[in-house]
Amino acid sequence: MSVPLESVTLRVNGAERAVRVEPRRTLLDALRLDLGLTGAKKACDMGNCGACTVLLDGRAVYACLLLAIDCAGREIATVEGLHDDPLQRAFIEADAFQCGFCTPGQIMSLKALFSRTPAPSDEEIVRAVSGNLCRCGAYRNIVRAARIAAGRR
């Protein structure tokens, strides 16, 4: 079945971006392929890993399980929109990554947490990243990084 392309305006990191996509194009593919924002990663494409985590209207979501067309007019934030964020600095300081492939997703999950809870507890931190797998096993340092960003050492 052939379906015409649809014009969709996405609001990404504060800027309006127009794309022409099939309805079946996911937000993740629209970001990565149509807009060249490759920070969010495609690792499972099934909502099972968290590498594609972005913020939608301030909430952490899996971009692989959203249709781009369904996100028209909503506020999308990706790792590319962060600039010298305390979380980014803390990730470097705590060595909170190895291969780095899950890192943008981890950071965005924590970004959502910090926007609601500026000084989260360890339990809240772990909960916030419990939907972000890290196969290198950097969890301990991811929690440490979040602690640093929360002002605790």
Binding site: A40, L82, Q88, G100, P104
Partner: peptide, 12 residues
């Protein structure tokens, strides 16, 4: 610190 850190935390 890891030299590639800044690239990895920015999505670059």
């Amino acid at each position: 610190k890891r030299i590639e850190g800044p690239e990895k935390v920015t999505g670059r």
